[in-house]
Design a protein around this nucleic acid. Structure first.
Length: 415
RNA sequence: GGAGAGGUGGCUGAGCGGCUUAAAGCACAGGUUUGCUAAACCUGGGUACGGGUAACUGUACCGGGGGUUCGAAUCCCCCCCUCUCCGCCA
């Protein structure tokens, strides 16, 4: 949600922002409704002031009672009107996207993302490299067929050494982040509607959400939801920020409408696993913290010897809550190109305004905290390792960084 | 799952229709004094949204939502949450 004052005082800025976003909210109408909203409230407050004043006289002045009764009726009508206006206003506000960083590239989709840099060496093969689906079956470490049998298409099993690789990857990643000053969490895997709304997943990603029947709960799409929601309705101390949090969790997404080549294997599934980084910071530190998360992501991929490129995500490929976003795309040898493995978003105060997360300094300064939400690693990193580190017979070599935790240095067919 | 007790400011906790502008204590901030890893005393408070150049001022907020009333933290209804005991359980 963006600041209503900003919309009131600088509607042109918000209008331009919506245009860039390709979002057709009528700002003029919104401003008009907001004005009506305020004037109605003012009328109501004046009437209430009269009522409060008069009702004190009521004990020994019967005339006042009659008057207050009249005010009461008048109030009832106005309050009803006000509720209607407020609802209309809220709906428009809830759908309004965040502002954009001036440097965000224009464009409709991921082909307009701006490449900032390429790192690492793309592996070369004397044979045609297999993709992770083929390798997973050959090595008996990924089972999508039984995932579909037991749950549904789009769910899968990690098995044997594949599981061990993932456990090592996720544990190692959390250790790296803890060494960088992060506090690790295990969070609930469900969250209330209020939490999903507050983090911006509702109303924007309603179709992506697995809601629980007969409960006001949904499976989390990411631990961002539960980590950011952790501080809802709290006032944080500027001296204790930035707060760096990480969590490992499963992530559930319906992935409505995705299909085709991109969904082969486990690249896009209904349940994946992720170590997430969240930073709560002062507004003036948001860009610095955003960069810090990117540094962490890159350090992890470098240590795992995975080639990648960093892109500055364009308007059309960025979610409504985002102010600026960097994606990292790792090289996948079996796929033969770069594919998204992490995304790192500066959300400014979009989430904290909805969730009411404030700061208050000793000097009396106060305002809304800013949040950064960034992937550390997911299963996709494990499959990048598989595709890039394969030998002709399908053997996959484990990166040195993980060998102490896996307890083996390769996964071979039939073993 | 069964039974009971509760939800009041940063915290503890009183208030149970209008003397509440929410007591008191703790904590916090400022000050005074005596002193030396502190104590005593005095003073001061919240949040949100409006109005005003301002000093100031209005409204709302006692878990949430309805209701009764001229007037609700207080009475009534519904919901949510927490705690204790019993049962079950990794």
């Amino acid at each position: 949600m963006i600041d209503i004052k900003l919309i009131r005082e600088n509607p042109e800025l918000v209008k331009k922002n919506c245009e860039r976003r390709g979002c057709d909210v009528d700002i003029d109408a919104l401003v008009k409704i907001e004005k009506e909203h305020r004037s109605t409230i003012q009328k109501i407050e004046e009437l209430r002031a009269d009522r409060n004043r008069l009702s004190k006289e009521c004990r020994d002045n019967p005339d006042a009672r009659v008057k207050v009764k009249e005010i009461k009726e008048e109030l009832a009508t106005l309050e009803q009107q006000q509720a209607r206006i407020e609802k209309e206003l809220d709906v428009s506000l809830f759908w309004l996207p965040n502002l954009l960083h001036p440097a965000v590239p224009d464009g409709d989709g991921d082909d307009a993302n701006f490449e900032l840099r390429k790192e690492g060496t793309v592996p070369e093969f004397s044979f045609k490299p297999r993709d992770h689906q083929e390798l997973g079956e050959l090595l008996d470490i990924i089972d999508t067929k039984r995932g579909a049998k037991v749950a549904q298409s789009g769910f899968f099993y990690w098995k044997g050494k594949g599981t061990q690789l993932c456990n090592a990857l996720f544990f190692w990643t959390q250790q790296q982040l803890i060494n960088s000053g992060f506090t690790s969490f295990m969070t609930p895997c469900v969250a209330k509607e209020k939490t999903l709304f507050g983090t911006g997943y509702l109303p924007f990603c309603a179709a992506e959400t697995y809601a629980l029947e007969d409960e006001n709960l949904a499976l989390i799409g990411t631990s961002e939801q539960t980590l950011v929601g952790y501080h809802a309705d709290e006032t944080l101390n500027p001296e204790e920020m930035p707060l760096r949090y990480c969590a490992f969790s499963p992530c559930f997404r319906t992935e409505a409408g995705s299909y085709g080549k991109e969904s082969r294997g486990i690249f896009r599934v209904h349940q994946f696993h992720k170590v997430e980084q969240i930073i709560f910071c002062m507004p003036e530190d948001a860009e610095k913290c955003h960069d810090e998360c990117l540094v962490n992501e890159e350090a992890l991929l470098k240590a795992l010897e995975i080639p990648y490129r960093v892109v500055d995500v364009c308007v059309g490929d960025m979610g409504a809550p985002g102010y600026r976003k960097y994606d990292i795309e790792a090289y996948f040898a079996g796929y033969g190109g770069y594919r998204e493995v992490t995304s790192n978003t500066n959300l400014t105060d979009f989430q904290t305004r909805r969730l009411n997360i404030r700061y208050k300094g000793k000097d009396g300064s106060k305002g809304l905290v800013n949040t950064i939400s960034a992937t550390a690693v997911t299963d996709r990193v494990a499959i990048a390792i598989m595709e890039n580190n394969q030998l002709e017979d399908g053997t996959v070599l484990i990166p040195k960084a993980l060998q102490a935790l896996t307890g083996f240095d390769k996964i071979e067919p039939g073993k």
